[in-house]
Simulated scan of single mutants.
Amino acid sequence: MPDQNTAALDFLLTRQSRPAKTFTLPVPSRDELIPILTAAARVPDHGKLEPWRFIVLEKPALRRLADLAEARAIEKGLDAEQVAKGRGQFDASHLAVVVVASPKPSPKIPEIEQTLSAGAACLALLNAATAAGWGANWLSGWPSYDRRFLEQGLGLTPEEFVAGIVHIGTAPLTPPDRPRPDLGRIVAWVGA
């Protein structure tokens, strides 16, 4: 039997997200965020293309994006609940990291594989922040899919898109665990 990293496996078996709307200060400093981002960048990346990048949103940027989300929601004719939700995600946060999927032209590595790598970076970021003792939550919301919001607010190129937004802060509580998937329903064992 191989050597086990029991602590890492226990962490993964019990990890859970915290509700982002409950996060308070403090948030990680830039120096504290570096090892978290470093861990997030250690995901499968066939071809070493780095098909993702990170945008760290500090409070002033989050306020600006809250205003832009509200303006875009009104322009789009969204209802009051959607306006509040789009704005609230940025208003309520003290720190967030946008994982930008940034596919690269490659004759060998299909775009879907690059997109999955960006998704892996989101989960690695979430796990690294949680392992570092912070509350972390992966959220998206309609602004993540609005091209004008992405290009004006985050400076994304037309080829780029948001894989996820991970909010990080101090989590005052650990929510009760939610029901987890029944492996009997989702696992198929193929022997031959």
Results as ranks from 00 to 15, higher is better:
Asn5Lys: 04
Ala7Val: 08
Thr14Val: 03
Arg15Ala: 02
Leu25Ile: 13
Pro28Glu: 00
Ser29Trp: 02
Asp31Ile: 13
Glu32Asp: 07
Glu32Pro: 02
Leu33Glu: 02
Leu37Val: 12
Arg42Phe: 13
Val43Ile: 15
Asp45Leu: 11
Leu49Thr: 00
Pro51Ile: 04
Pro51Leu: 10
Trp52Arg: 04
Trp52Asp: 02
Phe54Gly: 09
Glu58Ala: 03
Pro60Asn: 02
Arg63Gln: 03
Ala73Lys: 04
Glu75Gly: 06
Gly77Pro: 03
Leu78Ser: 05
Glu81Gln: 15
Val83Ser: 04
Ala84Thr: 04
Arg87Gln: 11
Arg87Ile: 05
Gly88Cys: 06
Ala92Gly: 15
Ser93Val: 00
Leu95Asp: 00
Leu95Lys: 00
Ala96Trp: 00
Val97Trp: 03
Val100Glu: 09
Val100Thr: 11
Ser106Glu: 07
Pro110Asp: 14
Glu111His: 11
Ile112Asp: 12
Ser117Phe: 05
Ser117Thr: 14
Ala120Pro: 06
Cys122Asp: 03
Leu123Phe: 12
Ala124His: 14
Leu125Asp: 00
Asn127Glu: 12
Ala131Gln: 07
Ala132Gln: 05
Ala132Thr: 12
Gly133His: 05
Trp134Ala: 01
Trp134Tyr: 05
Trp134His: 01
Asn137Ile: 06
Trp138His: 05
Tyr145Thr: 12
Asp146Val: 11
Arg148Lys: 06
Leu150Asp: 10
Leu150Glu: 13
Gln152Phe: 03
Gly153Thr: 15
Leu154Lys: 08
Gly155Lys: 14
Leu156Glu: 10
Glu159Tyr: 10
Phe161Trp: 14
Val162Asn: 11
Ala163Thr: 14
Gly164Cys: 07
Ile165Asp: 10
Val166Asp: 00
Ile168His: 00
Gly169His: 06
Gly169Ile: 03
Gly169Trp: 03
Asp177Thr: 12
Pro179Arg: 08
Asp182Ser: 13
Asp182Glu: 15
Arg185Leu: 08
Trp189Pro: 07
